[in-house]
Structures are given as C-alpha cells and as structure tokens.
Design a binder for these strands. Sequence first.
RNA 1: GCGGGAAUAGCUCAGUUGGUAGAGUGAAAGCUUCCCAAGCUUUAGGUCGCGGGUUCGAAUCCCGUUUCCCGCUCCA
Length: 516
Amino acid sequence: MIQEDLFKKIIAHSKEYGFIFPSSEIYDGLSAVYDYGQNGVELKNNIRRYWWESMVRLNENIVGLDAAIFMHPRTWEASGHVSAFNDPLIDNKDSKKRYRADQLIEDFLQKIEDKIQKEIDKAAQKFGASFDEAKFRNTNPRIIENQQKYDEFHKRYIHALECDDLKELHQFILDAEIVCAVSGTKNWTEVRKFNLMFSTQLGSVSEDANTIYLRPETAQGIFVNFLNVQKTGRMKIPFGIAQTGKAFRNEIVARQFILRMREFEQMEMQFFIQPGTEMEWYEFWKEKRMKWHKALGLGDQKYRFHDHNKLAHYANAACDIEFDFPIGFKEVEGIHSRTNFDLSNHEKFSGKKIQYFDTEANEAFTPYVIETSIGLDRMFFTVLSNAYVEEKVEWEGSAKEDRVVLKLPPALAPVQLAVLPLTKKDGLPEKAREIMDHMKFDFNCQYEEKDSIGKRYRRQDAIGTPFCITIDHDTLNDNTVTIRYRDTLQQERIIIDRLPEVMGGKVSMKELLKKL
RNA sequence: GCGGGAAUAGCUCAGUUGGUAGAGUGAAAGCUUCCCAAGCUUUAGGUCGCGGGUUCGAAUCCCGUUUCCCGCUCCA
C-alpha cells in the first residue's frame, strides 16, 4: 500500500471508530484543531499516565506540577518568545516561495563577509609569512569597498530589527538587490509578521485590559515555579519537575493531522543540574527516554535520534527522537540542554534571585537544565499509526477475510476487555453483566450483545481491544468462559476467576513500567 | 498568506443534453443463531458546503464565498 494512502486510512479509521474528530465539524471544522473521541480520550489518558508514572512515580527526585495556561506577559519576554516568535516573513511573487526576511538579509551579509575573507586568504597565501592582515584590510580597495558596504548594511539591518521596522527590512532587501534562490527575481511582497503566540485580554474593562498570551510551551510554568517547588519540596539538585498540559501556537501552516496542531498537549520534564554536568545528564536522558519509547514494543528500528545542527536560542545541545510514521520519520520528542538561559533570564526580568544553594560545597549557583519534551498528540499518533493493520484472516478452514485491527500495546488500549454473551436470551446477558460488574474495577470493560459474535469480535478488533470473553450456556453451569485473543484469534476456555491472572500481566501499566 | 484539487446519507461513491435524490455499506429495533463482518423483517438518516445569478425548472450551467486535502516556512 502506498504510504500516503495508509496515512489517510488511519485518519479515516480514527474518525470512524471514535478516536479523533475534526473540531466543530458541524460548522465545517476548524483548521488544525481536533477533538478526541470516546476511544481516543482513553488511549490518550493511558499514554499520559504511562509517561507520568515513569517520570514522577518511578523517580524519587522528580515531582509534578500543573501550572496555569495564562502567565504574566513578562514571562514571554524573558523566555525569548516575544522576539523569537515574531518572524518577519517575505514572499517571492514569482516562485511563490516564502522566506524569513531576517534570514535573507543575514545570508546577504554573510556573503559579503565571505568575499572579504576570500580576498584575504588569497593574499595570505601569496605573501606567506610576511603578510600583514590589518594593513591589507586598510589598503586593498576592493576590501575597503566591501567592508564599507557591509558596515552600512549591517547598521541598517540592526537598526531595523531594533525598531521592528518592517518597511525598512523590505527596503533593505530591495536595495541590497537580494534575489530569490528559486526564481532568481527581485519581485518581493511586503514584509509581514506572524506572531506565533495567541493573545487575549485579561481584565473585564477593555481600557484596563492587558494583553496576555496563551502559553506557547509548558516549560516556562516550571521555570517560574522553580524556587516554589525546590523550597517547599526540599528538593536537592539534581532534581526534576514534570508537567503535562496544553500549549498553543498560531502556526502559519498547520497540517498533517494531529502531528501539527494549533492547540496541542506537551509532556515536559525539566531536570535541574549542577553547571558543567550537562553533557553527562543530556546523554543520560537521551538514553532513558529512548528506553521509554522502546518498552512499548512498537519496534526498535522505527526510532532514531536526530541531532540539531542549528540550535534554538536557549540550547547548547539538542536532539529529537523521531518515529517512522507512514509519512516518514517525524519528531516525537525533543531533548534539549537549555543551559541556565531560562532561570537566569527570569532572574533578570523579575528582579528576584533564582539560585540554588549547595550546602555541601557552600556555594550558590543558577542550575543548568536538561529538558525532555514530548508531544502527547504526536505520541498518540505514533501508537495509533503503528497499531493499524489490515490483514487476511482465516478461521478454521473458512474463506480468508479481511480485517482491520489495531494492535495497540494492551496496557494502552481504550477497552481492555469486551464482555460478550453469545446470545441475547436464556440468562446469558444477565450472567455477562454479573461478570462485567465484577471485572470493571480492575479493567476497562465494554459490554456488547448486538449482532453475531463474529461481527462483535471484528468491532473490538477495530478499536484494539486485546481480550474478548464470550459467555455461553456452559458458563451458567461451570463458570468458564471463552477468551479470545486479538492478535492471534486463538481461543481458550478458562474459569472466570482466572481472568485477572491471564489478562493482568499484559494489560497492566505496572508490568509496562517494570520494563524501564 | 500563495498555488493546485475537492465538497451529494455516518462511510465509500453513482446521479443521463438541466425535469420530484439513488446504491453498497454502516446505524437502530425485532426474529433467528452455540464462537470470527451469515440470514430475514422494520426504521431512521440528505435544503446535494454556503450565498447569489441564468431558467418555467439547478446536485447539474455561471459568479462569489467558506471549509477540507496536497505543496511552500517553523516545530512538540
């Protein structure tokens, strides 16, 4: 099957079986926003729980937090989002290609610098040891000319950036005669800005209202609470703070289903450490996070690390964990060494001292941070897309038939046990209900009596239920049921009391966590 | 934002030169049925994305618009 088609089929399947719906669909939907349906929410909750328990419950030195989505506006100045999330963009009208205006200009400036450097290198080679670079710079007419050009443009550029002057950036590009790499023309649109943060008003009276932002990442809620948690929890470095929650980005182009949404959920852990130990901990968390992924058993070869060459404004080392989706390898999780950028900036902007006092060394310092940040929605799609299987099945010599099955890790499945009376009479439904009422405290169960047993099995396959039990007339006499396994279609006759033992190992979060 | 494609029942789609809206499948209720989408009966479900125009008459022709999907930037 063509991978693109598979991607579409999975999207259709998730809607048909109540995993994911387009937002406000009766009003034709809202671009890049999705709702989780009755099965989706269970799967999502299970993934979140797997993450939370592996972080908070299994690590004594990691504690949780649930910070508000609204934060003081200064937070985003300190974090760098106000400037970094305000990219000036420009389009070439001929090639239809979009560029960041500041990058076009920086490339242009770089080219002049390269030209100068080339001239110098040439001369240096020619004159050998007697070469005087400073003198050469001051006397060579071509270098002087280029240097002047550079200084002039550089000054204009810095000034335009500082004043946030979009017209000037546009004029700069025209004056510098920058051409599009694709079309080769200078036919540019105006420079426009897209603020990637959503804003709204705080305060009921409009005159008093302050512009506040919906958080573009959850991390800052952790940083601003660093001292609160550290002091009240008496935390000693190294320690971590974990949080899950919604974040919002007004992406210019948001597509590819739930891999890229305007409203998404992050699961983040910020690990605070002694400066100088960051590479050690960076490696530690890379390995640890990869182990978490692989424990789900989706296939080790489907994961890879991708190191960032270009680092974000806050990082000194960064990589992604990528998963092999039907549309290729895509980022699921990021692991970043954020240095002390955030804490020291919050210290600067708030005027409050944010430091950790190490009583053993008797010194105070601003901790460094290793961040692990995973997209819950992306993780959801990782699990779902990997589980989707179309296959031919054969049942005891009958003709081969197609079935669609979600081979979800049993511990994450929305429904763990389907309870199915073979027929609707002779007291079978009553017996089934009785079993279900007993089992529902330990497992997420679903009762179904409509349609033939085969049809019900297939419906459960489609939502990834790992176990079905069937109640028949013998059950009334000897308390045995047929248990049917999703992946193999095998059936077994077992005593009802043995169910928790047969299922338990596979569907329990505990067993999954023990692998870590 | 720019370019390309699409929109008819929950889903997949048909719909003749413009003449009262159709199939398959799914859904619900019932009958039957002792283990892998069986069969029978009944029922529900559509201002044909929306708005205008042409016409006696528009799902169909024309214009506009919205939304979705695919490419162009960034990222969890």
